Computed example of a mutant assay.
Amino acid sequence: MNADVSTGPSAAARTGPGSPARPGPRGPVEAATAMFLVGTLAAVAGVIGDYPVYGGQALRHLLAAAALLTVARVAGLRFVRLTARETALLATLSLTGLVIFNVCVVEATRHGGPALVGTVLGTVPLALALLGGRPSPRLLGAATLVAAGATVAAGLGSGDLTGLLWSLGALGCEVCFSMLAIPLLPKLGAVRVSAYSVTLAVPMLVAAGLLVDGTAMFRAPTVPEAAGLGYQALIVTTVAFFLWYDALPRLGPGRAGLFAGLIPVGAIVTGAVLGLGAPSAPDLLGAALVVTGIVVGLSSSGSPAGRARRPAGAGRTAAEGSRPTGAG
């Protein structure tokens, strides 16, 4: 490919609107909001902690799937027929990034507590920077700074080896959640990738729940549990998924991954707002390191890691995706 992508119509087609070569506020704002919302999960975890795990997650994803499919229909986004490779990618994304991720987080929390999980997930920016291409020293340093800040904010905890292994599993699934979506976004767009992956997760979670809990996987939720599950479905899953998948091709995995450091920051702020505890000095230091790392990373425009490799058709916006074959 021609190395000169700075001028001409073909450059716009390769980079696409809002891509790192044409910076704008939309990608950073969406990525920051998405990861902050994911961080708010900590505030509702206790509310739904007594509800059967698989049943609760199945209900959450079922509600989110209904919302996302409704949005796709209202927006006029018709169903897109996928190739066998694309179907396999989407199924793997749903299995790893949604189903197994939730299992890993629950098990890691049981063995090591949320601090251990937050510490390991704090390395997501570094992992995405390494996997997103050839990171510049500036971007790699920024990712390391964000990971350090997330670790300080989350705390080191006192987990055991089992908890650490489950946390590492969650880290791998979180990376899959982004990397497996990149080849799908140009064709499907953010809404359809979110809707299709969430929909596929429902039968997987139901099957797992029936194997583990049997018919006890479902029961009528209490009012607080229903509110917590509804928040997870509509705000975290529906809104945050769309925002993240819309931001990902605009920023590239390396730069977008920096915002994963906001997950523990979101938990700290939400806990303080809801009166669950005032932030400590390490919390504030970690938040400051995360913000500094994000600013440093976003200033490294034009770095190889900041440009996701985009297949043909990537010039279309991630929110819309390509039109179905034969759509006219």
Rank of each mutant, 00 (worst) to 15 (best):
M1Y: 09
I263G: 00
G214L: 02
A115I: 07
T83I: 10
A272L: 02
S158K: 09
A34D: 10
V206R: 02
L145D: 03
G49E: 12
L37K: 03
G315D: 11
G46M: 04
I182T: 12
S194R: 03
P135Y: 00
G293Q: 01
V29N: 01
G8C: 07
V295C: 02
V291Q: 00
A227P: 10
D50A: 15
G228H: 05
L289P: 00
R309S: 10
A91W: 05
R22A: 14
R250K: 13
A312Y: 05
G155A: 06
P186E: 05
G209V: 07
T151W: 12
L164G: 15
A216S: 14
G27E: 02
A84C: 05
L258C: 01
L126W: 02
V152G: 08
S197Q: 13
V103I: 15
R323L: 15
V106A: 15
A208C: 14
A143L: 02
R78K: 14
R138F: 02
F218M: 14
F259A: 14
R309K: 04
P324V: 07
L69E: 11
R192F: 10
L298M: 09
T70W: 12
V223L: 15
V269Q: 04
T317C: 11
T199F: 07
G39L: 02
L82P: 08
A58H: 07
G27L: 03
M217Q: 15
L234A: 06
C173W: 01
L262R: 01
F259W: 04
A91E: 03
G159W: 00
T238G: 10
L211V: 15
V71M: 12
G149D: 06
